[in-house]
Design a protein around this nucleic acid. Structure first.
Lengths: 234, 234
DNA sequence: ACCTGAACACCGTTCAAGT
DNA sequence: ACCTGAACACCGTTCAAGT
C-alpha cells in the first residue's frame, strides 16, 4: 500500500510474476553473482517476492536451471539467425565456424552457463534444435550420417562454443611465478620448459599467456579440418 | 568402552582417523552413492565418526574434494606406470593413446570424478604431473613447444580420458522412441534422419546406440592424427 | 592431541493459510 | 489464482567443551 502512495494504482509498479520473468531474473542473478548466487531465496529477493512464490512458475530449482539454459539458447539463436547459410557444400566449415563462434560470444557473457548446461540430466529441446542445425551442416558438407554422428560426439561441447579446460588460466599464471620454476622443474620438466620458452620469446609476458579464444579456435579448426579430410580424402 | 567388552583393547577395533582414511572413504561414498552422497555428515557416518571430526584432517569440504582427485590420480598413475615408454619418436601417438585409455578405464570406475576434476578452482599437483607427462610425449613426437601447448588445450579433458557430452546416452535412447519420431521430425529433421538410418541399418537396435568408448576413441584419434599432421606435413 | 555436542546461518521444499 | 509465513529436513561450518 505504502508503495502506491503518491502514484495511482498503475499496473507498472507491481509487474505480475511469470515463468519468463523468473527465468530472466535467474539469468541476471547468475551473471552478476555467479552460480552460487542462484538460490530460490536469492532469485526471489531480486524479484521483490518470497521464495515460495517461485514454485508457482517453476516446479523446483532444477527446472529453473533448465529454464536458464533455454534463455541462453534463445539468445544464441537470435544472434545466429541472421547469419548466411552455406551457399555451396564446401562452405559448410565456414558456416559452422561462424555459428559456433557466435554462440561462444554469447556464452562468454554468461560464464556460468557451460556448467549448468553440462549438469542437466535431461536434454534441453533448444539444445537439441541447435545440435540438429550443426548436424545439418555436416550433411551439407557431404558427411555420411555415420560420420556426422561421430562428428557430433567429437565436437562435444565445442558444438555450442565452449570447452571446459583442466588448466584454469589464472592457475597457470600463478604457477608461472618465476621463483617457483626451479622448484617445479624437478616434477614438471616439460611444463617448466614450455613456460621458459614463453619467457624467452616474450620477456614482458605476464605469463597469463593462454589466449582462450585462440586456443578454442585452434581446437575447433583441428577437429573440423580432420573431419573434412575424413570426408573427402585426397 | 562398551565396544571393547569381550575383546581386549586391541588397536584393530578403532583405527584412528587420518587424512588418507577420510579421502579414501569420501571416494568410496561417491562410488556408491554418487556426488550428492558426499557430504561431511555422510562421509563421517561411513567412518563411524562425527562430522566435525573430519575438520581435523581436511580444511573443509572443498579440500576434501581436492583430495579425492588426488586419490583417483594416484590410482591412474599406478595403472599407467608399468606401460612401456615410446621406443622411437613415431611411437608417441600409440603411447599417448595407451596412457589416456588406461586413465579412462580408471575414471569409468569413478563416474563422479570428471565433474569434481572440472569443478576444482586450483589445479591439483598430480593433474599437473599428468599433463607434464602428456606434454613430454608431444615433445618426443617432435612437436614444438608452441604446438605442444596448443595441443594440450585442444585435448582438454580428453588428456585425462574423459569428455563431457551434451547428449546423454540415456536421453538419446528415450528421444528415439519411434512413436515420437514423426513429432520430432518437424523441428529436428537431421537428428530424426540419423536415427532412422540407425534403425534401417540395425532394426533390432535398442537405439541406445552411442558406444561411448568408440566415440571417445574416434575423437581422440581425430585430434592426435590432426596434430601429427601439423607436425610432420607430407 | 583428537574427538564431540550444541548451535548458527544457510539451503530446497511442503503445507496450511491468507487474499 | 496467486502469494505468503511458519516449519521441516537437510547442508557446511564454528566454537567451546570434553577426554
Amino acid at each position: 500500500m505504502a508503495a502506491q502512495v503518491g502514484t495511482d494504482a498503475e499496473p507498472v509498479a507491481r509487474t505480475p510474476l511469470s515463468r519468463d520473468r523468473v527465468l530472466r531474473t535467474a539469468v541476471a542473478v547468475a551473471d552478476e553473482g555467479g552460480l552460487d548466487a542462484v538460490t530460490m531465496r536469492g532469485v526471489a529477493e531480486a524479484l521483490g517476492v518470497e521464495a515460495m512464490s517461485l514454485y508457482h512458475h517453476v516446479a523446483n530449482k532444477e527446472a529453473m536451471l533448465d529454464g536458464t539454459v533455454d534463455v541462453v539458447l534463445t539468445e544464441i539463436m537470435a544472434v545466429v539467425a541472421p547469419l548466411e547459410p552455406p551457399d555451396r557444400p564446401a562452405a559448410w566449415k565456414d558456416t559452422m565456424r561462424s555459428r559456433i563462434l557466435a554462440a561462444r560470444e554469447v556464452l562468454l557473457r554468461h560464464p556460468w552457463a557451460p556448467t549448468v548446461i553440462e549438469s542437466r540430466t535431461s536434454i534441453s529441446p533448444l539444445v537439441a534444435v541447435w545440435m540438429d542445425g550443426i548436424l545439418g551442416l555436416f550433411r551439407v558438407g557431404g558427411l555420411s550420417w555415420d560420420l556426422s554422428h561421430h562428428a557430433m560426439h567429437a565436437l562435444g561441447s565445442r558444438a555450442l562454443g565452449f570447452n571446459q579446460e583442466l588448466f584454469q588460466p589464472d592457475d597457470a599464471a600463478d604457477a608461472a611465478d618465476v621463483d617457483l620454476l626451479d622448484e617445479m622443474a624437478e616434477h614438471l620438466p616439460n611444463i617448466v620448459g614450455m613456460l621458459q620458452e614463453v619467457v624467452h620469446d616474450d620477456p614482458d609476458s605476464t605469463l597469463g599467456w593462454c589466449d582462450d579464444q585462440a586456443e578454442f579456435e585452434f581446437g575447433l579448426d583441428l577437429l573440423l579440418d580432420g573431419l573434412d579430410r575424413l570426408c573427402s580424402p585426397d
